[in-house]
Simulated assay, not measured.
Amino acid sequence: MPSQVFVRGMLYLSLTVVGVPGNTVVIVAFLLLLYQENRLLTADAIILHLACVNLLVVGVRCLLEMLASFHLADVFGDTGCKAVIFVYRTSRALSIWLTFLLSAYQCLSIAPPGSRWVSVRSFVSNYLSFVFLILWTLNTCMTTAAILFSFSSKNESVLANDAINVEFCHVNFPSKLSKQANGAAQVGRDVVPMALMTLASLIILVFLYKHSQQVKGLRSSGGCGAGGGSGGAEQRATKAVVTLVTLYVVLYGVDNGLWVYTLTVRKSMSSSLISDLRIFFSSLYAALSPLVIIVSNRKVNSRLRCLTQENPVVEKATSLSTM
């Protein structure tokens, strides 16, 4: 096996090993919460949806790329390439927009009572399923090019000068104009939520700074009990969202920079290195974001503790019953 293929396989293996269990843990934790409380808060529902989409990103793309790199399985025929690239691009785009939705909702949650933004937050909560449907429809429609122009790399008869090489598959655009138009649409789809979530995060950071200054003022004036309880939980939630947004902006910023390079450089199909780097950085967010959620979200932590504590109890009860 060539060293480049081995390194490629190991990189995708690392993403799979981290991303699949991490997102699965988050999904299971929130499903347990839904089962126990028969409802999910809006932010929790968004995080659950985000974890499901990130699991698709890692499971569909990284796992299959790893298996193909090590020659354990190969689904990258013409139909397989169309399906994998379509699902990957759709779920990747949804991951971006759901991160924006989470940051926007967290930003709305710190709006003062009586503000018009409170009504916007209530609208999002009441029609969250409709918001999810819009995001799915929008991003699915924008990735239809993957179905039309994706082919297996084995099918050299359809290879064109404007094709984008993604190792086992290539996206074969009919012309340079169609390639650049599709690329510009994808960049615009990513940049818009990036700008909006960055703005929302800046607002959250300003709020946290002002809140910390108020707490210091209360403490210096002899006040007690400031900054505890729900205020601490709210700050943890806002800091977690800011961390997710920062992670997104860094990784997807690199991803989109490489995508722009792919669109502008000539003979981009000659090597799959750029495409591999793009997939790695965008999938890295899907793999690392559940770790941020697991560390920062108390609801996830409490459900995980319950699961780990129940097993010894069950084993102990079983042993006593046999005596």
Results as ranks from 00 to 15, higher is better:
34 L>Q: 13
36 Q>Y: 06
38 N>G: 05
38 N>T: 03
38 N>E: 13
38 N>S: 12
38 N>Q: 15
39 R>H: 14
39 R>S: 13
39 R>D: 04
39 R>G: 02
40 L>E: 01
40 L>G: 06
41 L>Q: 14
41 L>A: 12
42 T>C: 14
43 A>K: 06
44 D>M: 01
44 D>R: 00
45 A>N: 13
46 I>H: 00
47 I>F: 04
47 I>A: 00
47 I>L: 05
47 I>H: 01
48 L>W: 02
48 L>D: 01
48 L>C: 12
48 L>E: 00
48 L>V: 09
49 H>C: 14
50 L>N: 10
51 A>N: 12
51 A>G: 12
51 A>K: 09
52 C>G: 06
52 C>Q: 10
52 C>I: 10
52 C>W: 07
52 C>D: 02
53 V>D: 04
53 V>I: 13
53 V>G: 01
54 N>Q: 09
54 N>H: 13
54 N>Y: 05
55 L>I: 03
55 L>A: 08
56 L>F: 11
56 L>Y: 05
56 L>V: 12
56 L>G: 04
56 L>S: 07
56 L>E: 06
56 L>C: 14
57 V>Y: 05
57 V>E: 07
57 V>S: 07
59 G>L: 07
59 G>T: 11
60 V>T: 12
60 V>A: 11
60 V>E: 11
62 C>K: 02
62 C>H: 04
62 C>N: 14
63 L>A: 08
63 L>Y: 06
